[in-house]
Amino acid sequence: MLFTLAAAISILAVALICVFLFANGLPAMFQIGIPEFLLGTTWKPGSDMYGIFPMIVGSIYVTAGAILVGVPAGILTAIYLSRFAGSRVASVLRPGIELLAGIPSVVYGFFGLMVLVPFIRATMPGRGLSLLAASMLLGIMILPTVITVAKNALDAVPKSYYEGALALGATRERAVFRILVPAAFSGIMAAVVLGVGRAIGETMAVVMVAGNQPVMPNSIFEGVRTMTANIVMEMGYAADLHRGALIATGVVLFVFIMLISLLFSAIKKRGEER
């Protein structure tokens, strides 16, 4: 009974969030016009223009950048931890990764603001507050997720596959990339998808380093505003349709997250069938 109740609370919470989001967001979306809202490129609440396309693109760009930075490093680290690291190295690395997962995102943001942004400003064009800064920072932030999930997938591959490859005279690298990684492929994809979910939903750290101009970025050195940043920056003073448009931004974000979650389950299911 107690267990059922506890489980019911989380379901109830999801349902309430859903109802709140859609009840408040959809009317605003209809009032603005769905094509104008989703595909409009001008966000000017003062003139009642609510096009969030730059923010959708911004979220996608920033997430893609984070994947480019974080996924290769994360997967290589997972392989290293799963197969090559001696127990002494692993005993340092594993708590380090756990710590990385526990750092509050505002602290990541500070790090980005004080270290990454000045570095980019000094060595590259633009003001530093940029798509590049946000991508690099998010790339680091998704590392623990990617590493943990990918490592679990790699650990689940029977040791005998790896040994079989070595026994044929394959190098460790060939055994890893031709046998181990393909065998863990669905789990590694799941790691990537979870990383995407983490990156697309991240708010605080991104707001602090991304510049947040609500326009389409033309290069990775320009500022960019994500959907999450859009909501958190304007919610404090927004009213009426402006407020509704921000909640509708949340609806779009919610749909993105839901799609990612569906993709994750599909990949997991495929992995289990194999």
Partner: peptide
């Protein structure tokens, strides 16, 4: 090996 270990 003792256990057959064909690659997947």
């Amino acid at each position: 090996f003792q256990q057959p270990n064909p690659f997947p």
